[in-house]
C-alpha cells in the first residue's frame, strides 16, 4: 500500500504508526469491507466530519496522522453501536479510542474533564471523589445515616505504581 497518496493532503501512508495504533486492538480495521453499517447506526453521525467507516478506511490504508489530529475522534459517543453492527468483527469504537490515546500521548489534546478524572484517580483510586449523597431537598447524608456500611476504597501502592508505569509508557 506504500504507493498510495492522499490527494487531498498529499499524505503518504504511515505503516509504522498504523501498526502502533492497531497493535492492542481486539477487532482492528483490516477486515473492513466498507459496507457502512457502522455509519448507518452511528449516534454521533451528525457531529462527525469523518464518519466511522471513513475513519476505519483511512486507518486501514495507513493514513493515520490525519485521524489522530482530527476533531471527529472526540465527537464519538462511545455507544458501541458500530461494533455491534459490524459484520466483519471490526470495532470502530476501539480504533477511535486508540486514536485518542495517540492524540493525548502526542500532547495534541486532552479534554479538561479527563484531566480532572486522572488527578482524582491518582489521589483516591476512584474516578470521582467519594462524597455524601444529596437528596432532592438539598440535604446531605453520610453512608452510616443511610444504613450503608463504610467501604474501603483506593488502589494499593503497588497498583498505583503499576498504573503510573502503564500511563507513562504511552
Amino acid at each position: 500500500m506504500s504507493g498510495l497518496t492522499d490527494l487531498m493532503t498529499m499524505a503518504k501512508p504511515n505503516e509504522a504508526l498504523k501498526a502502533r495504533i492497531i497493535a492492542l486492538l481486539a477487532r482492528g480495521p483490516d477486515m473492513c469491507l466498507q459496507c457502512g453499517r457502522c455509519t448507518s447506526g452511528c449516534t454521533a453521525f451528525r457531529l462527525l466530519e469523518l464518519k466511522p467507516h471513513e475513519i476505519v478506511c483511512s486507518a486501514k490504508m495507513g493514513f493515520v496522522e490525519e485521524l489522530v489530529s482530527s476533531k471527529s475522534i472526540w465527537d464519538c459517543a462511545l455507544c458501541l453501536k458500530c461494533a455491534e453492527r459490524c459484520p466483519q468483527e471490526v470495532s470502530p469504537y476501539e480504533l477511535i479510542l486508540s486514536l485518542r490515546n495517540e492524540a493525548i500521548s502526542k500532547g495534541l489534546e486532552i479534554p479538561e474533564a479527563l484531566r480532572d478524572i486522572l488527578m482524582t484517580l491518582m489521589e483516591t483510586g476512584l474516578a470521582f471523589k467519594p462524597k455524601k449523597a444529596v437528596d432532592r431537598e438539598g440535604k446531605a447524608y453520610g453512608r452510616e445515616e443511610l444504613g450503608l456500611p463504610a467501604l474501603r476504597t483506593g488502589l494499593s501502592e503497588q497498583a498505583l505504581m503499576a498504573l503510573m508505569e502503564l500511563l507513562g509508557g504511552a
Binding site: 486532552i110 484517580l121 483510586g125 498504573l163
Partner: peptide
C-alpha cells in the same frame, strides 16, 4: 459481600490509555 477496597474500573480513562484502563478493569 462488598469487594474491598473498591477502585476505579478504568472506564473514564479509556480515551487516555487502553492498556491502563483494561488493567484497572481486570484488576
Amino acid at each position: 459481600t462488598d469487594l474491598e477496597p473498591q477502585s476505579c474500573c478504568g472506564e473514564p480513562i479509556r480515551s487516555l490509555n487502553l492498556t491502563a484502563s483494561c488493567y484497572l478493569a481486570l484488576r
